[in-house]
C-alpha cells in the first residue's frame, strides 16, 4: 500500500478563476459531490453501526470492552508506537540535515533529490520485504531479528511523503538567506540549526512526523511477512476470530490516522492561503 502526502507543495489555485473557466451547472456539482461523499461516509457509518451490533440487533459496546481487556491489544499497539517513534526519530535525523544541505549547497539538484525520495514507490513493499529477507538474513540478530529492522525499513518506505513535507517547508522559507544572515552574525552550524532552522521548519517537521508515524501505525505487509505482530497484524488475527471487534478496532485505527492528517492538511492549506494574497489590481473588482 503506497500512501502519498497531501500535496502541500502545489501552488494555490486561483479560486475565482477555475469556477469561471469550468462553468459547470449546479445540479452536476451537487450530484457528483453527493454521490462521492456518500461513498466515503457510508463505510464509516456502517462500521460504527456494525461495531455496536449485539445479538438480535441490540446495541452493545462489548466489542470495545473486550478489545480493551485484551493484553495483546495494548502490547501490539505499544510495539507499533515504539516502532513509529523510532522511525520518526531516524527520519528526522536523516532528512533534516539532508534537506537543508540540498537547499543551501546543491539547490540545482533539489529536483534530483526529490525524485530520489520517490524511489521507494518503484519497489512494492512486498518486494522490499523479500529483499530484506534475502540480503539481511546474515546480519546480527539485534537488527534483523528485532523490530529495529521495521524502523529501519519504514524510514525508506515513508520517504515519499516525509521528504516532501520537509522539502516544501524548507522551500517556503528563504533558507539560503537565513543561513547566510546567521553566518554573517557569527553563528555556527549548531546554533544555526537550533535557533534559526528548527523554529522556522517546525510546521514541516511536525507534518513529516505525523505522516511517518501514521504510516508506521498502519503498515501491514512488511511487519506481517517478517512475522512481527504489530497492531495491524493483530487486527487481521482478530478479524479471523471476531468480526465486530475487528471492525471496532479498524474504526479506531482509521479515526486515529484521519484526525492528525486532517489537522495538518488544514493547517498547511491555511498557511498556503495566507501566503497568497490576491493581487487586487489584476482582477479589478471582478
Amino acid at each position: 500500500m503506497v500512501t502519498i502526502a497531501p500535496d502541500i507543495t502545489s501552488k494555490p489555485g486561483s479560486a475565482n478563476n477555475s469556477s469561471d473557466v469550468l462553468r459547470l451547472g449546479r445540479p452536476f456539482r451537487y450530484i457528483v459531490l453527493t454521490l462521492v461523499g456518500l461513498f466515503f461516509i457510508v463505510p464509516i457509518v456502517s462500521s460504527a453501526r456494525f461495531s455496536f451490533l449485539g445479538n438480535h440487533n441490540s446495541f452493545t459496546i462489548s466489542a470495545y470492552t473486550q478489545l480493551f481487556g485484551t493484553a495483546q491489544f495494548w502490547s501490539t499497539l505499544f510495539l507499533s508506537a515504539k516502532v513509529g517513534v523510532g522511525t520518526v526519530f531516524l527520519t528526522l535525523l536523516l532528512l533534516i540535515p539532508t534537506v537543508v544541505w540540498v537547499h543551501v549547497r546543491l539547490p540545482k539538484l533539489r529536483r534530483v533529490f526529490e525524485a530520489a525520495s520517490l524511489l521507494p514507490l518503484v519497489v512494492p513493499s512486498v518486494v522490499v520485504t523479500l529483499g530484506v529477507i534475502t540480503s539481511f538474513r546474515g546480519l546480527p540478530n539485534i537488527i534483523y531479528g528485532t523490530p529495529v529492522i521495521l524502523s529501519l525499513e519504514y524510514v525508506v518506505l515513508a520517504l515519499p511523503f516525509s521528504y516532501r513535507a520537509l522539502d516544501s517547508a524548507v522551500q517556503s522559507i528563504d533558507l539560503k538567506t537565513l543561513v547566510e544572515a546567521g553566518q554573517s552574525l557569527g553563528s555556527g552550524w549548531i546554533k544555526l540549526l537550533r535557533y534559526v532552522l528548527l523554529p522556522n521548519l517546525r510546521g514541516g517537521i511536525i507534518g513529516a512526523s505525523i505522516l511517518t508515524f501514521a504510516f508506521c501505525l498502519g503498515e501491514f505487509a512488511v511487519a506481517s511477512l517478517l512475522s512481527f505482530t504489530t497492531f495491524p497484524v493483530f487486527l487481521v488475527q482478530v478479524g479471523q476470530l471476531a468480526a465486530s471487534q475487528a471492525v471496532a478496532l479498524s474504526l479506531l485505527a482509521l479515526l486515529f490516522t484521519w484526525i492528525p492528517l486532517a489537522v495538518i492538511t488544514i493547517v498547511f492549506s491555511q498557511r498556503r492561503a495566507k501566503r497568497s494574497t490576491p493581487v487586487l489590481d489584476d482582477l479589478e473588482i471582478s
Binding site: 500500500m1 500512501t3 502519498i4 502526502a5 497531501p6 500535496d7 466515503f40 463505510p43 464509516i44 456502517s46 462500521s47 453501526r49 456494525f50 461495531s51 505522516l211 501514521a214 498502519g218 503498515e219 501491514f220 495491524p232 487486527l235 487481521v236 478479524g239 468480526a243 475487528a246 471492525v247 478496532l249 479498524s250 474504526l251 485505527a253 482509521l254 490516522t257 484521519w258 492528517l261 486532517a262 492538511t265
Partner: peptide, 17 residues
C-alpha cells in the same frame, strides 16, 4: 488528503462491515 492515506487493514474491515 486524509482519505488518500487510508488503506491497509482497517479499510478492508470497514468494507466488510
Amino acid at each position: 488528503g486524509v482519505f488518500a492515506n487510508t488503506g491497509g487493514v482497517p479499510l478492508a474491515f470497514s468494507f466488510v462491515a
